[in-house]
């Protein structure tokens, strides 16, 4: 199977997960022919204005789309690849870089480049950061920031074997090891500036539900699957979920859903200072816009 992997408005974390497959990588690579992947393989576009990408059975794209050049690359990938997968939360929902959408790309970058500016042939910003499916048709998604190596390996193996990849539809809470009592003591939301209660030091099993302890935890409104059978990565070390995998089932608005949960539990949601920050992984699809809402 010929594979092309393009990275757009991304950090390289999704690509690193491929190498983190460890011993499972060499046998997997024997079944793949990687024809394009800038991080690990020398293939060049020829030109940035009309980039060339070799034809492939499978195209993986990580990162969202924030620049005109990235849009051209994505459109080329779509043309050259039979099956196109949005890999990682930046590709599926915008990810952290889409926080810029509260500001707007042009204004935000002006704030950095100042009076000198940046030539448009270096970066030519679009109005905002997009998820891939806002630009082209996407055949499959694998959110995660980054996805676990086994999830990336599992996706590739499933495609090779002609199977439908497994996709969790439930929330982070469903695989959370924290202990829930159904009782909430705080009327407001606490900032994560003091240690949560644990029954036994160093044991996630003894952790009381962070939401019930009064911390903000996006577990209830976030797609499950991170950490796989080991349980959610962050909560396992006693740190609340911030929504890495985007909304449950891939749709919906994590901010609205979370504020609803707080309000229906009698919690004063105005104690969440950065409410729009609840969309910190899912700010594409027009969810974060400049000036929308009272707080950024």
């Amino acid at each position: 199977m010929r594979v092309a992997w393009e990275w757009l408005h991304s950090c390289g974390g999704c690509e690193a997960t491929l190498l983190d497959l460890g011993e499972a990588l060499p046998p997997l690579l024997r079944r793949l022919e990687i024809v394009h992947m800038s991080l690990l393989h020398d293939h060049r576009y020829g030109s940035d204005s009309a980039p060339e990408i070799p034809g492939a059975d499978l195209g993986l794209v990580s990162g969202g789309v924030a620049f005109a050049g990235q849009q051209r690359l994505l459109e080329t990938m779509r043309r050259r690849c039979d099956l196109l997968v949005a890999l990682g939360t930046c590709a599926t929902h915008g990810g952290i870089p889409a926080l810029m959408n509260s500001r707007g790309m042009v204004d935000g970058l002006d704030g950095i480049a100042g009076s000198v500016g940046i030539d448009p042939d270096v970066v030519e910003p679009l109005e905002r950061v997009h998820a891939l499916d806002e630009i082209v048709q996407v055949d499959m998604v694998l959110p995660g920031c980054p996805p676990d190596p086994e999830q990336v390996g599992g996706l590739l193996t499933a495609i090779l074997d002609g199977r439908e990849p497994a996709r969790p539809s439930r929330s982070v809470c469903d695989s959370c090891p924290a202990i829930r009592t159904g009782e909430r003591r705080e009327a407001g939301v606490k900032r994560f500036c003091s240690p949560p209660e644990v029954a036994e030091a160093g044991e996630a099993v003894g952790l009381r539900c962070l939401q019930e302890q009064g911390f903000l935890c996006l577990g209830p409104v976030t797609a499950g699957g991170c950490g796989m059978e080991r349980g959610p990565h962050c909560i396992r070390v006693g740190v609340p979920c911030r929504g890495c995998l985007g909304p449950v089932g891939g749709q919906g608005n994590q901010m609205v859903a979370m504020l609803n949960i707080l309000a229906s539990g009698g919690v004063d949601f105005r104690t969440v200072l950065d409410r729009r920050g609840l969309l910190r992984f899912a700010g594409a699809h027009g969810r974060l816009r400049p000036g929308k809402g009272k707080k950024r």
Binding site: M100, I112, V123, F192
Partner: peptide
């Protein structure tokens, strides 16, 4: 030719959250 603008979009956010952004 990559710029995501972290210095700009962390502004106004709780500092303890920025550690994990």
């Amino acid at each position: 030719n990559s710029l995501r603008g972290f210095e700009q979009f962390v502004l106004g956010r709780e500092a303890e959250e920025v550690i994990r952004i």
